[in-house]
Write a protein that binds this DNA or RNA. Structure first.
Lengths: 318, 318
DNA sequence: ACCTATATGCTCAATCGGAGTATTAATTAT
DNA sequence: ATAATTAATACTCCGATTGAGCATATAGGT
């Protein structure tokens, strides 16, 4: 029984840690995905969790809103980890809890430090809107192939080749836009990003793409990956859209996040099948081309659609 | 600039907290989903995070394996939260980080305290393998309807009805097996589970289904929900299966986790389309019925399949 | 009057997914 | 032994979904 009680609650002597909250705050400006950064783009906003906050999320909201003077919309937890490479002055371990936040407005516009940056500056190879990223074929794949060819064991070589294939495809097609994190981790492992420089081999001329301090670029990758996955089964894009918008604007928004172009007609078919939006009655006036209808998000569907498509071949209720 | 530096790292005076790791350990025995519990089923195994562990996951593995004397297979993080209702003797806040773990063997069999329990003892309404759970129509829906009918505002009433519908359907069909957590939370909100008794209204004769202490049943719900979602797009079931198995055994395993029955023929079609398994050449001998082929999991597919199906109507690479 | 840029409507074929029928091959009960 | 029972497997059908395009409509600009 003593064992059990040891398991059930931390002993008083349990290690004390400090909680750090990190935020990947996303907005869309001019059809470009933006993320809020600090210190010349080198850090994600982060702050301590103080015990007066009732929950972690409220703690996060508190300092984000205090810093940005703007309400924060949708928030979801990303991941928690204990950074083994960081400790505090007082020796306490730091545990980082990261969040993804979506917001409609550009916050603190023009201000120098909290600054919005296009997330593709950090991950240039993730933008396929103009076709397969040339960076992959020209810079990345050659180095990855060198790595897989360097494997002695044929089995290991096959494994490495497979891993490259899954993550980066053949440079042309078979691109899975959700693997943002895995791709970053592969590049990190091979020392192809500056953040990896403290480890083993030196960085052999790092790839294009801005680094961040600590593991903030990894956290950003996690956030992008999560968002790219989520837009497929939850109407979260609307958190980033203005109240009314045209279908093309909506399409461009999703394309910006996914880093891929969509088939216009099929996209429209999908949208109205899902009943996600309704016409406002108004039309766009300015700009070239035929005026488009304006739509608004049907907030009701947040309740209607439980989604969660089953890929399981269910049987009849009998 | 001072603002910025405040944001980037916790001040030395930042609140100290204690980390508690919780585990939802799952195994399958005789086609029933089992979860490891302590103290007569009232707690999930949990232990403190000590700073000598390089990562959170290794900390988790360490004490789980020390307690159960068995290696732990697949592990994934579930959620992190700061329980507002709990504080430690020394006043430190407790932050709980929960994990889902899958294991092939029944650990410490027959031992009294770490004990495996069928998870449907905690969530009887989640088992639809024998058809729509009668518990829902007889016990749950009547009480939920009382709640929705009690709403004065018609808009509120509609909202409540919708919420009931999404989560529990009409008692017959439209069941979404992934909403384990949302359903539990709804029941909790309405005070229909014993754990909610400390709050507002007293519990009006709680529903069937064993409670747990603290918020462990909520954590369990999170784990089940995650696993039910994951088996649809990742080959995690195999972490719970023996080395070789028949297709029916595999089907029963998935049915146990999902709480629903599958269409046998279509299930088989799906499995071999995906190329997840290969024949061993052997057949089953004992037991009634025509002998079945034995299969094994093709570990290679872990690499092959990046899966992540897109529901986006992509356009051609142009 | 054209040209260009969008918005929208519709079609067509391939594939997928849900449901069921039919047949084969073992074990168990009578 | 023979029939009943339990599984395993093979196929078929058909409606819904999805990927790709063609065609037409409606604006502003030159």
């Amino acid at each position: 029984m003593h064992n059990a009680s040891e398991m059930k609650s931390p002993s008083v002597s349990a290690t004390a840690v400090t909680i750090e909250l990190n935020a990947v705050l996303v907005a869309l400006t001019a059809n470009e995905p933006q993320v809020l950064t600090l210190e010349d783009g080198g850090l994600l906003p982060s702050g301590p969790f103080e015990s007066e906050h009732p929950t972690l999320q409220s703690g996060l909201r508190a300092w984000v809103e205090q810093q940005t003077h703007h309400p924060l919309g949708y928030v979801e937890q990303l991941y928690t980890f204990a950074d083994r490479n960081r400790a505090q002055e007082n020796g306490r371990r730091i545990v980082s809890i990261s969040y993804l936040g979506l917001t409609r407005e550009r916050l603190s516009r023009g201000v120098r430090d909290p600054e919005w940056r296009n997330w593709y500056r950090y991950f240039p190879w993730e933008d396929w809107r103009a076709g397969p990223s040339p960076l992959i074929a020209k810079e990345i794949l050659p180095r990855l192939r060198k790595w897989s060819d360097a494997a002695g064991d044929p089995a290991l070589k096959r494994e490495r080749r497979q891993r490259i294939d899954i993550n980066f495809g053949d440079g042309k097609d078979h691109w899975n836009e959700e693997l943002v994190l895995q791709r970053y981790e592969l590049l990190y492992e091979l020392g192809l990003v500056p953040e990896a420089s403290s480890r083993a081999g030196s960085v052999s001329s790092p790839l294009p793409g801005m680094p961040m301090r600590h593991d903030h670029r990894r956290i950003l990758a996690t956030g992008i990956a999560r968002l790219r996955a989520k837009i497929k089964y939850r109407p979260v894009v609307f958190e980033l859209m203005p109240d009314t918008f045209t279908l093309l604007q909506l399409q461009r928004a999703i394309e910006a996040l996914a880093g891929r172009t969509l088939h216009k007609q099929n996209f429209r078919r999908l949208i109205d099948q899902q009943g996600l939006v309704e016409e406002t009655g108004a039309l766009t006036s300015q700009s070239a081309g035929r005026p488009a209808k304006l739509y608004r998000f049907r907030r009701e569907v947040m309740l209607e659609r439980a989604v969660g498509g089953s890929k399981l071949p269910l049987s009849r209720p009998a």
